[in-house]
């Protein structure tokens, strides 16, 4: 089968294992991430694994894209150690504060800059934002179809993938034509562990960095100012749920329960 040109979008997120240390800055309404290490968004690891597996089946090339601060270079180096062929960091202060659409615009510009793609793979959602919007928005901007929450994936022929997508109610098997964007779920594969050999192989590969000046992007549509959605407030939800223990004989407990449910007359035969 012909080699595929595969793009994988990844987002560096605060390590989920340290999520109990995340706090919200009351003034800026942003997450305070200081001291919490960044990792590849967990579902993006599955996206990368899916890309690498397809490449291993029929050669091809996997390029990773990320819009993130310069510190994300380490995260992108990790994707190279896992088996990506090249990594592109889209980093510029003017990108900061962008919502999902502004982010998708920057990613779309980065992808266009680097060529044409048969397949674009994203994680279904990010661990921190969790909107699940960037993938579909990117597909719209690139003018290609998309499928979300892919949980099984197989190359069918030169121009088709066999995919299984899952929603709340059903699983569907689909024959999908390339070019295509998919977002993947954790069921799609088991991401490989880092290996020393992969780390050494990454020495020969570089992270390419582009700023806004390098990209075909309209500055009015990126960053905080170019974002149609703005965060008005961010707060920690305080749970007000309480457990109340009903005591007494089974009959007494039953009556109390019916009383709580507003069914006393009917239930207790009063």
């Amino acid at each position: 089968m012909r080699p595929l040109r595969i793009a994988v979008c990844v987002k560096p997120v605060p390590d989920p294992k340290e999520s109990n240390r995340l706090q919200i800055d009351p003034a800026t309404k942003t997450l305070v991430r200081k001291g919490i290490p960044l990792v590849i968004n967990p579902l993006d690891r599955h996206a990368l694994e899916a890309g690498i597996k397809l490449k291993e089946e029929a050669e091809g090339k996997v390029t990773v894209f990320s819009m993130a601060p310069p510190a994300a270079e380490q995260t992108l180096t990790e994707t190279l150690a896992m088996g990506a062929d090249e990594a592109v960091l889209l980093s510029d202060l003017r990108f900061a504060g962008g919502d999902t659409l502004a982010t998708a615009r920057v990613l779309a510009a980065g992808l266009k800059k680097m060529g044409e793609w048969d397949l674009i793979i994203c994680g279904a959602e990010s661990f921190d934002g969790g909107t699940a919007q960037v993938g579909p928005q990117l597909a719209v901007l690139l003018g290609i179809p998309w499928l979300t929450r892919v949980c099984q994936l197989k190359r069918e022929d030169d121009n088709h993938l066999l995919v299984t997508v899952e929603d709340e109610t059903e699983q569907r098997d689909l024959l999908a034509q390339l070019p295509l964007l998919i977002t993947v779920d954790s069921a799609v594969n088991q991401p490989r562990r880092l290996s020393l050999l992969g780390i050494l192989a990454a020495r020969k590969r570089k992270v390419i960095t582009f700023t806004a000046d390098d990209l075909p992007v309209d500055l009015a549509g990126i960053g905080l100012n170019g974002s149609p959605t703005q965060t008005r407030d961010l707060f920690t939800h305080e749970s007000t749920k309480k457990v109340e223990l009903l005591t007494g004989s089974p009959q007494q407990v039953a009556i109390q329960l019916l009383d709580k449910l507003g069914l006393t007359e009917k239930g207790a035969g009063q």
Binding site: E73, Q74, T77, E78, A81, R193, L194, S195, L196, G198, I199, A202, R203
Partner: peptide, 17 residues
């Protein structure tokens, strides 16, 4: 170095998983 950080991470993955 970035490579040493990755090495630590690779060892941690084996240890934890």
């Amino acid at each position: 170095t970035a490579e040493q950080e990755l090495l630590k991470k690779a060892a941690r993955e084996v240890a934890e998983e």
